Amino acid sequence: MSVSLQKTLHALSVRLRHFFHIISNIRPIVWIALYVSLIPIFAYFYSQLPDCQFRAPDGADRDYGAWLYYSIVTITTLGFGDYTPAHGLAQTVTAVEVMCGMLTLGFFLNAVGSMKSEIDVEAELEKQRRVHYAVEKEKLMKSIPGVMRNIKTFLAYCYAVTTPLSKRQGDTPDYNPQFSLDDMKDMALPTGLSFDMSKRPAVERLMKSASHTSLCLDSLEARVDLTLWSGLLDNCFAFVANWQMFSAVDSFGNISSDHVPEDVGELYHFIKENADIAMHLEEELTSLVKAG
């Protein structure tokens, strides 16, 4: 076989595959509509042929209704035999209608098969999605208690840093998102929180808590497919990213009461943003636990 012939056959094969791919994507209802529409079209052709082209019983009608009947029994390949093509032109038109009907019916059945395959594939994918969701949710639910502990601790230290020592309530830390820079004046003093026995500066404890929370959320992203919970994923990513970009961590990681770093404004914005994110995370995780 010559190279040119091989190329021609290959090109033809590609075109045929493309053609049948297009055909397979046509909905069955289209083929049914085409199949039905062929009946009146060919009936019209038959009505335009001379009467001598057909054999019909004596006294049989030869109006459009009769040819509509003939077209139906022809395209369905019933062929009762009362009307028969007698000459070449009528035989040709009849043969064309039969072929068109068979092809259309074949394409219809192919479309039904393709649709069934699509339904089966979609059903299998949906089953896999449900299984995947169940597995990931189970992993998430097991991780929630640890994540919640880190978030609550972080918010408690945010409260300690943003609340003057005289106003702190060790048993009921309630972070106030509306705090000001003046409220952070005692951040170098111990937290005063009932669970914090370290006596270290509140801001230092906040830095360690932020680091632990960031690691916890980063680990959660690695272990659980959080794309199933887009809001949760966005908040986890934002918290971790904000912590990684917080350049003043070294300044506040080791602080003393007699020396407060000058870049308090950066800390102020960090707390504002990440405490807000932490509260959203807390709400989302709580709602997931309630939903079961």
Rank of each mutant, 00 (worst) to 15 (best):
Q91K: 15
C236V: 03
T286D: 13
N242I: 06
L193G: 12
Y175F: 15
Y70M: 09
I41G: 10
L165A: 14
A86Q: 02
F45Y: 10
K185E: 07
V121R: 02
R149K: 01
L165D: 13
G265L: 13
H212P: 00
P261E: 06
F80R: 02
A86T: 00
T191V: 00
Q178R: 07
M115K: 05
P190Y: 09
D250I: 10
F195C: 09
D258E: 13
W67S: 12
H21Q: 01
I41R: 14
P85G: 02
Y133V: 00
A160E: 00
P261C: 04
L232C: 00
A95T: 15
A33D: 14
R205Y: 13
K7I: 15
A11C: 11
E122Q: 11
G106Y: 08
L217K: 03
G65L: 14
D276R: 14
F270V: 12
A60W: 15
T104R: 07
D183M: 07
L281P: 08
L12H: 00
P28W: 04
D250P: 04
Q169L: 12
D258P: 04
R200G: 13
D263K: 15
S24K: 14
N235I: 00
Q244I: 02
D120G: 09
F42R: 04
F19N: 03
M187Y: 04
F54A: 03
W229H: 06
I151T: 03
N242D: 05
K208G: 14
K137M: 07
K208H: 15
E262Q: 09
P57L: 06
Y175M: 12
R17E: 03
P57G: 11
R149W: 01
Y70E: 07
L105Q: 06
I32T: 05
T77H: 01
S71C: 07
I144F: 04
T191R: 09
E282K: 12
N235P: 02
K208F: 13
L103Y: 04
T104I: 01
L233W: 12
G265Y: 10
P145F: 02
I151R: 07
P201C: 10
D258I: 15
L12A: 14
E221N: 12
S143L: 03
Y46V: 08
S4Q: 11
L193P: 11
V112N: 03
E221C: 08
K290D: 11
G292Q: 03
E283I: 03
L206Q: 05
Q6G: 07
P40H: 14
T153G: 09
L220V: 05
M245T: 11
A202T: 06
L217C: 02
G292C: 00
R17S: 01
F237Q: 14
A156E: 05
V161H: 03
F54V: 02
P57Q: 06
D196M: 09
D61I: 06
T94Q: 08
D225R: 06
G231A: 05
L109H: 01
S211C: 11
H269G: 15
V131C: 01
M141Q: 04
I144N: 07
C236M: 06
G192S: 11
A123V: 04
P28G: 03
A11P: 04
F246Q: 10
I75G: 01
A160V: 10
C236L: 03
F179C: 06
D186F: 11
T92I: 10
T94C: 11
S251R: 14
R130W: 01
Y83Q: 00
D61W: 05
M197G: 14
I32G: 02
S2Q: 09
L165I: 13
L181V: 07
T227P: 01
